[in-house]
Design a protein around this nucleic acid. Structure first.
Lengths: 199, 199
DNA sequence: AAAAAGATTGTGAATGTTCACTAACTAAAA
DNA sequence: TTTTAGTTAGTGAACATTCACAATCTTTTT
């Protein structure tokens, strides 16, 4: 379930898999390419993983654990909900900025189709993010920082949708623009729009 | 470029391709499955299309033309921007409700990886939609129906992001809920949130 | 109107390529 | 000496695509 049980070589392999994902997409992620990237013969990969599926799942579990941990650290109840929301997305943009391959992994349905286990792993990542996001938005609504005009889930849907679309645009632009700067700008606009009206 | 040059059989084939896409995803769309769906031998497919790629491209061009036409009809300058925005999304939800396979085609990066031509075709669909959306949002901002607190592009980004995420959720739920009802609800919440504050 | 010629649209078998994965072997480390 | 981590050389299955051929429909010629 967690990362603890992963060897150094296994970690190298899932990183190589990530590198391939970001450069060649899901269809480029083959055992052959993975072995080439590692400087191995293909069969050597199977010394470390039972199947291609377990490689992808290991990668996604690593991401989920990592994200969960980072988001937990970044949120503080000394901050206002607004600051926490900013912190979450700042963290996300910094992370994906340094690990663009995970964008392909998470926001790719090519992977999701591959197997039910992979599907489940991707959904868990989404849920991990929502787990952290939800209470902050709710708190922000209660304290009057965010609008109460629509339900919490809907506010989250709109925020997440804007985030995902931004990631999509970054990906089809081949990661060519600065997602961190663009992300800051997006967040400022989202902040503006979810502000309650002062009547 | 346009649909005019498509034969009846070609139309049947792209419809069969769509059916397969919605039931089995991008990875299920093989010539073998396509031939089975048509009641053909595999080779017969090649009487009507040069390659698998041209089938997908034909399908996307059909969708782009169709969407462009429908959106053009649905928008009227007798309506308020709010009504037009509603009309656009109403139309989209009705259409995708009756043609769920196009959701897979358009919102799938599995397809986008396949070839530059397919990639370009999908981007054209997105641009067609934005072409209709942009002036309405802009008009709404000028007339004070939508908030001026953030730029038009950003408002569009947020609206499109929410729409796309809704489609994604519908797809991973295997089209099991009523996207039309859910879409109406989403639109009412978006309307609420893009309203300008009355100070 | 009948026959010949040609085009259209299908079939079945086969092509070469790529894929994930496996078996048997080998060298070095523990 | 046994375990570990790599190699070479395969496997069968799936894939898009092609080819020689046949039946049917359409057009042209007689």
């Amino acid at each position: 379930m967690s990362i603890s049980s992963i060897s150094d070589r296994q970690f190298e392999i899932i990183q190589a898999a990530g590198k391939i994902l970001s450069s060649s997409g899901v269809s480029g992620l083959t055992i052959k390419n993975l072995a080439k990237e590692m400087g191995f013969a293909e069969s050597a990969i199977y010394r470390h993983f039972d199947s291609k599926e377990t490689i992808v799942v290991a990668m996604l579990i690593y991401l989920a654990d990592n994200m969960d941990e980072r988001l937990g650290k970044v949120i503080s109840n000394r901050n206002t909900p607004k600051e926490n929301l900013d912190a979450i997305f700042n963290d996300q943009f910094v992370f994906f900025s340094g690990n663009p391959h995970f964008v392909v992994a998470v926001f790719s349905d090519g992977l999701m189709e591959a197997s039910p286990k992979i599907n489940a792993a991707i959904l868990r990542i989404m849920q991990a993010k929502m787990k952290h996001l939800m209470p902050i938005i709710m708190e922000g609504q209660h304290q009057g920082y965010f609008t109460n005009a629509i339900p919490t889930e809907e506010l989250m849907h709109i925020i997440l949708g804007a985030f995902r679309l931004q990631m999509f645009k970054w990906r089809i632009a081949n990661f060519q623009f600065d997602i961190f700067e663009r992300g800051k700008y997006l967040m400022s606009n989202i902040s503006t729009i979810i502000q309650p009206c002062k009547n």
